[in-house]
Nucleic acid binder design. Structure first.
Lengths: 154, 154
DNA sequence: TTTGAATAGTTGTTTAACTAACTATATGCC
DNA sequence: GGCATATAGTTAGTTAAACAACTATTCAAA
């Protein structure tokens, strides 16, 4: 049963996600100022590959909450920038393993610091326990709405 | 002074705003299923005009956190759909007042119900006080990062 | 072994975001 | 009045997201 505690006037900022837009824009600005020629979306793919190199495109879909065409184009653009390479898998020839280049590994430390700075700026003055509450609420929202899409991450 | 309580592994979901993406996708799906031929972005502009009709494009920029070109195109597309009309202001001929059509007023009740349903689905099982904390944290994040842009909403 | 379904990935099309460069109108100062 | 500056909006170009339709490979069952 819905818990109807939401008022119309408050809908907007939740739907638009203005806070995450602000974070993304600030981080993008830091990239630009540092002369880094990558987008936030490209960075979000690299971020997953830094955690684990050689993911398939399908695995990148799940990890980044994007659909297959989006990942195809992002990998296209990352390949153009010489940051990743598609390596055909020998076990299963349908699969491309996406592998980081040396250039991409060099980006990791620099951009991670920028991302951490951005989050620290965003969360200055916010008590740690409130951040925990916020994180768990956002996770629940995501889980509540995405359950049906789990196996076809569109 | 930054309060360094953020760990690398947690960066991603904040930056991407996956929760608001999930909300937007669910709401878009409801629009599609109801045969409504509008996008979430278009709806977010209509939402502001339902609150106050006749806003200028500049005011829509501030209200929806978008830049001027984005609003130009959204208004273009809303005009094509016969949902708004640009009315040249007589006081200041630089300004377009964006006015809702009868068709747009008809959409209001239906889509607002869908938006409320979506939020209720998203926030089922979340206690009201946690929602309040989350809202305030997201507002602080936005304010922390957008202060410098207040007068040029890019 | 062949057929049909599922999976991995690509392509085409529309809508939108961001930047930069642009036009037109208004305002303020000399 | 004339000129610089600010403001409102548009246009052009690149990147990305969502959806539908497509190809190629794998796998399972008759």
């Amino acid at each position: 049963m819905p818990n109807n505690h939401f008022k119309k006037g408050e809908l907007y900022s939740f739907v638009t996600g203005k806070a995450s837009i602000a974070i993304a824009r600030r981080l993008q600005k830091k990239f630009n100022q540092a002369g880094l020629n990558i987008t936030i979306e490209q960075w979000s793919v690299l971020y997953q590959l830094w955690k684990q190199d050689g993911l398939s495109q399908q695995e990148l879909c799940r990890a980044t909450f994007r659909d297959k065409p989006s990942i195809t184009r992002l990998v296209d653009n990352l390949e153009k920038l010489q940051l990743v390479r598609r390596m055909a898998s020998s076990d299963d020839r349908r699969i491309n393993r996406i592998c980081l280049t040396k250039l991409a590994f060099k980006l990791q430390e620099q951009t991670m610091l920028m991302a951490e700075d951005t989050l620290n700026e965003a969360l200055e003055t916010v008590p740690a326990e409130q951040i925990e509450v916020c994180k768990s609420v956002l996770q629940i929202v995501y889980d509540n709405l995405n359950y049906e899409n789990k196996n076809k991450p569109r």
